[in-house]
Design a protein around this nucleic acid. Structure first.
Lengths: 114, 114
DNA sequence: TTCATGTATTCACATAAGCGGATTTCCGGT
DNA sequence: ACCGGAAATCCGCTTATGTGAATACATGAA
């Protein structure tokens, strides 16, 4: 059904989507947008970064179809295309938390040993 | 509980984990390993890429704690650290498939219009 | 110790991305 | 038509990441 060529192609798109979320600023943006649509200025205010940076990152997100946008007057509102992206991010974050927690426990154990 | 500084730090680690999976070769590797532990030669054979490439990608994966490894004689076996990474990848892949399917339907509709 | 095999790392290079400031474009109000 | 605010893009620059060939390292066997 899925030959080698197609699989490689899928992996490429898959990786492209992943690289869309593989940046701390964009992760922050996605979580902000998980609360609902927001315009650029609001996001700039939320993250406290230069407007050019935010715009650039939003562009990456929409190029990868991770967010949608619509113009409303002078402002542009962005919103998540698919909530499942947050779901995936949450899963990975849980994995991360598990690791950090385990590490913290080791530190704790080492400390009480003295 | 989670101040601004900590949140940024978490996002950084989160992004680092994501960038670990944000490559077509590494995605292929992770799916191969989801079938169980494999050594490097096996992975080289599976993916048909130069051994140096595979080794380099495996290094990225273990630097990010996405895989574990153990030496067994002359060979080194790699395995997933946490199955949930595959779960997250699957979610994202489903999102991707949905997009592709929707696009295919549009093409289909446009074709039958004539 | 020497050799063969499996794996990791180095090398030189190419390309991709990130950054902030400046500029441009787009829009509604006047 | 012009102005001001919102957003996107351009600019020069820096850093990160990918590539395959070659080389180095590790291990078990002879």
């Amino acid at each position: 059904m899925l030959n080698e060529r197609m699989r490689e192609e899928i992996n490429l798109l898959h990786a492209r989507m992943c690289s869309g979320i593989a940046d701390p600023v964009r992760i922050a943006l996605l979580y902000e947008l998980s609360q609902g649509p927001k315009n650029v200025s609001a996001l700039v205010a939320d993250l406290g970064l230069p407007q050019s940076s935010i715009s650039r990152h939003l562009r990456v997100l929409r190029d990868r179809h991770l967010v949608r946008w619509r113009r409303e007057g002078a402002m542009v509102y962005y919103e998540l295309t698919d909530e499942r992206v947050i779901e995936a991010l949450d899963v990975l974050r849980d994995v991360l938390y598990g690791r950090l927690e385990r590490r913290a426990n080791l530190v704790q154990a080492a400390r009480t040993k003295h």
